[in-house]
Design a protein around this nucleic acid. Structure first.
Lengths: 342, 342
DNA sequence: GTTAGCACTCGAGTGTTTCGAGTGCTAATT
DNA sequence: AATTAGCACTCGAAACACTCGAGTGCTAAC
């Protein structure tokens, strides 16, 4: 168990380190904290904290930096979400309060704002209900060989895909196909829909559409895309400020990973709740050892849960990030409630 | 005017430099070229070439590197498009020959392949006819307050946007609005459509849709997006291999620029023809002084002109890039002709 | 016109030195 | 028993000197 003074020292060390980026020595801490103790005393305490694994040296006579265990302790017990400055609040209110028309715009602007305000990388996931159902399905003949499929869910998502059919199809056949789809698929949860689309439906519509495999592939991608399209990422390049230790090759891998939205699933656990922080090694990915991911969820009652995430250096200012995220989650809940209402 | 020997030396110097990246000395050139001349003679010739501005030193006793003027001369007179290796050809044929279904996929895969094969950054623009016309316009009520607009052009492009209307609108009114759109807009060139959308139409539909400004903004963005959506960029991160001289700040600017497709207009002149190369300063942008942009056009008869571009270091292998681009333009013409045909 | 020969230049790499921030330990102090 | 002043020690960063070699320009001879 840590003594009060040890906690104060650890707290000060982490605050100092996250704001300067430099290893912190005993004198610096002495000048920072209220406690009346000489640098020698603090050195003793630091040596103790090091033995317990909360802090470490970069070389034998250097100051100390927090270790993973140190950060973990800080985040679990010492973080004080920082209040967001008035001017920043105003920007957030303006941007998100503004009556934006499209869901994508809201998400996109949130991500951008979040990365701007934190100077880190922001990832925003739109709200997703646990099991949304298919409520509408339409096929629309655009011309002789182009058809548009429109997929609606009970959560307000609308996806559409245009695809070409191998041969032109009679309008009447198209209607029949649409009817079959409506009859067999509408009302089902999306995962069920995907399954039926692969198994049962091909048999049913074979007589109207001869070579429909392409169509199914496309439709399936439309169903899935709602998952990939949930990710909005912004400020990727802010990470460059924290990658001095990486070589070119690693940088490439890092950005290839971030550019490919499918990979973000690996990073972000969509089943988490409230605030969570993954520090460095906790992300289980070599490339991210020097990064931390702070995630917060937001609820839009009746329309599911979304996620806000900030990816920054392990030595990021957690206080500030927590503060900003907290404001965002509230504002976003509010904005989206309006969005779904009117 | 340059003598034959001087040209041979310039040619060898550029080839050597583009393959090693190091300043080239007289002895190296002596060993490379067929001409029978001592290193001293070559030194004299190099000194002459330097006086004319084709090559330059990096410091007073260094080897020479090509100057902008040198590259220009090389590209205008000496480039020999390199034949593409058999195995690479096969990959190209496989990927582009494969019967891909969506235009976007073709473009996207082309960009990716092009950047893979060159190890530079690839930008691909889909074909665009000089003046495509609006051939179809539909409004589709999805539910009480969501409407989908579908825009078709005579070149096969199909854009669509979903937007919400402030209040629910009668089905019949919607039809009337759609009729007005069809009557006044269909058949016109797209730029004309955009103009009318701003000026004449609002007056006409005012009585059916009270607050339609949002709708127009959205529609306009759909019209324009067909321009932004033409850009497909891949292999951005390959540029990292050629940015050792850039600081973090510049890197950020560079990638912010490339990430924002709207900015690519600045880089790529859509009115050019055949092969063109912009070398370093010729791009008129500080960030690109050490890069070159090689562009090639491809024609899909009756469906317009598209652009292939490769962005790499000024010291890139132009021979290879020209070779690859030439194969691509042919294959892409072929692939797209098929695409439009069936 | 060409070339061998040579003095000269400069960057890259390597080793040396200095400096200061920081530590751990010991002995004296409270 | 906890604290602290004092001091020897450590190590990285920065500054500096030295060497090496690839390359040049110039001159004089071919």
């Amino acid at each position: 168990m840590l003594t009060k003074r040890q906690i104060i020292i650890l707290d000060a060390l982490i605050r100092l380190y996250t704001s300067t980026g430099q290893p912190i020595g005993s004198k610096t801490i002495m000048n920072e904290i209220e406690v009346d103790a000489s640098s020698a005393t603090i050195r003793n305490e630091m040596s103790f904290l090091e033995k317990l694994g909360f802090i470490q040296k970069t070389h034998s006579s250097s100051g100390r930096v927090p270790s993973l265990k140190g950060y973990r302790f800080y985040i679990d017990h010492l973080v004080k979400p920082q209040e967001v400055a008035q001017d920043k609040m105003q920007v957030i209110n303006e941007v998100l309060g503004n009556h934006v028309k499209q869901m994508d715009d809201i998400m996109h602007q949130s991500a951008q704002l979040l990365s701007d305000l934190t100077s880190y990388t922001a990832i925003v996931l739109g709200p997703k209900a646990e099991s949304s159902r298919l409520t509408g399905f339409r096929l629309l003949a655009l011309n002789d060989n182009h058809v548009m499929a429109i997929i609606q869910t009970d959560r307000g998502t609308i996806e559409n895909k245009v695809f070409r059919l191998p041969r032109s199809i009679k309008e009447s056949d198209l209607t029949k196909v649409a009817n079959i789809f409506n009859h067999h698929l509408v009302g089902l949860p999306l995962n069920e829909v995907a399954r039926k689309l692969q198994r049962d439906i091909p048999l049913l519509i074979r007589k109207y559409v001869s070579n429909a495999m392409d169509m199914f592939l496309t439709l399936e991608s439309a169903l899935n895309s709602s998952s990939e399209d949930r990710y909005h990422i912004s400020g990727k390049m802010n990470l460059l400020d924290f990658t001095e230790d990486m070589d070119k090759q690693k940088l490439k891998s890092l950005y290839t990973l971030l550019d490919n939205k499918g990979n973000l699933d690996l990073l972000i656990d969509t089943m988490q709740q409230d605030f969570e922080v993954k520090i460095g090694e906790e992300m289980n990915h070599e490339l991210f050892t020097n990064f931390s991911l702070v995630t917060a969820t937001y609820q839009v009652s009746g329309h599911g849960t979304g996620i806000l995430a900030v990816l920054g250096p392990t030595s990021m200012s957690y206080d500030e990030t927590f503060g900003v995220l907290d404001v965002f989650r509230k504002q976003l809940t509010h904005t989206l409630l309006n969005y779904y209402l009117d």
